[in-house]
Write a protein that binds this DNA or RNA. Structure first.
Lengths: 179, 179
DNA sequence: CGCACAAGTCAACATCCGTTGACAAGAAAT
DNA sequence: ATTTCTTGTCAACGGATGTTGACTTGTGCG
């Protein structure tokens, strides 16, 4: 019975790696199974369906630590961006959103999960939905620009310039005092 | 012979509407053909393949008018965002990028087309690749936040608050004086 | 009219993919 | 050792989708 949990975990890890980075519709189950070293049929046994597998990868995906103030928010996000490419194995939550939020199969699920887990916390910390939305927007755009569009004007992750650019965008977003 | 061009155009228009908004892999050819009121096989005749059809929709897609200074750049983009939802029929170039830039089939094409057509102009106008990249990032993020993630903190398009938010982000991006 | 070519339709094929149920190997229990 | 439950594999089905070739309809020209 322990063996089963181990392979279930291998499937889950591989699924998170592939589905989050390339998008739900772009990854066949057979590839996930092969990456985990087992047969496809086991996915049906352990997760019921492809959707079940995807939902399992979302467990605690959007969990955000409680942050005391805006400065530590910025520093935390900075570390997320800088450390994420280091280990390289687990795609970031931003990638998950970018590759799956407009997918016809799972878009709603991703949006809802993100909204429930992150928006309230951000709004509480930043004081207004508008500031929270602009902050999220800036993060999304920077992620898309770097990972997806590969804009050559964005410095390479980890460099001081990269940190300066990201920090500038975040502080700019937080400087919004709108209606 | 004129009739052919007309239906070719109907196919092209419908393809742009569907492929740009929902993404290359998420739209079956049969749906495009049905929307244009013709049979699927005509796509093969007029465009060779699905990829050929998609590439045809990219003709002049990224064409950007020459802009004299940064202020008119901001105003032009603002009008783009405000007017785009009005006619509602043609998705914006930003949507095209968001839904297709990470598609395994056409991602490279979209990235290359965008880079060739927009980046050089933006860099020339803004003076540095970094400022151009941050400007693009901010636009992308705002688009994703509004259309894809539907962040509730983003005002409804067309409202004064919407314009204020977008203007704030753009001027913030342009205020970057990095290395 | 009759013919040739353009424009469009139809059915079928090949492939991919999620899913399913029957079956095999291996461990645990009696 | 035999049985029973767990874990895993295999082949096949059914649906969707891009693509192809044969066929039909329509139109202009002699």
């Amino acid at each position: 019975m322990n063996k089963a949990l181990a392979t279930r975990d291998r499937l889950l890890t591989e699924a998170r790696r592939l589905l989050w980075s390339r998008g739900y519709s772009n990854v066949p189950l057979r590839e996930i199974a092969q990456g985990a070293g087992v047969d496809v049929a086991l996915i049906a046994r352990y997760f019921g369906s492809k959707l079940g597998l995807f939902e399992a990868t979302l467990e605690n995906a959007f969990a955000v630590p409680d942050l005391p103030d805006e400065d530590t928010l910025i520093e935390t996000v900075l570390r997320m961006f800088v450390e994420a490419p280091r280990d390289g194995n687990t795609p970031s939550v931003l990638q998950l959103i970018q590759t799956n939020a407009n997918d016809p199969d799972v878009g709603d699920i991703v949006r809802r999960a993100q909204a429930e887990a992150m928006q309230d916390k951000l709004e509480a910390l930043l004081g207004s939905p508008a500031r929270a939305a602009l902050f999220m927007s800036v993060l999304l755009g920077f992620g898309v620009g770097e990972k997806t569009l590969k804009l050559k004007g964005i410095a390479s992750p980890g460099s001081p310039a990269f940190e300066a650019q990201l920090r500038h965008l975040m502080t700019s977003a937080l400087s919004y005092k709108g209606p």
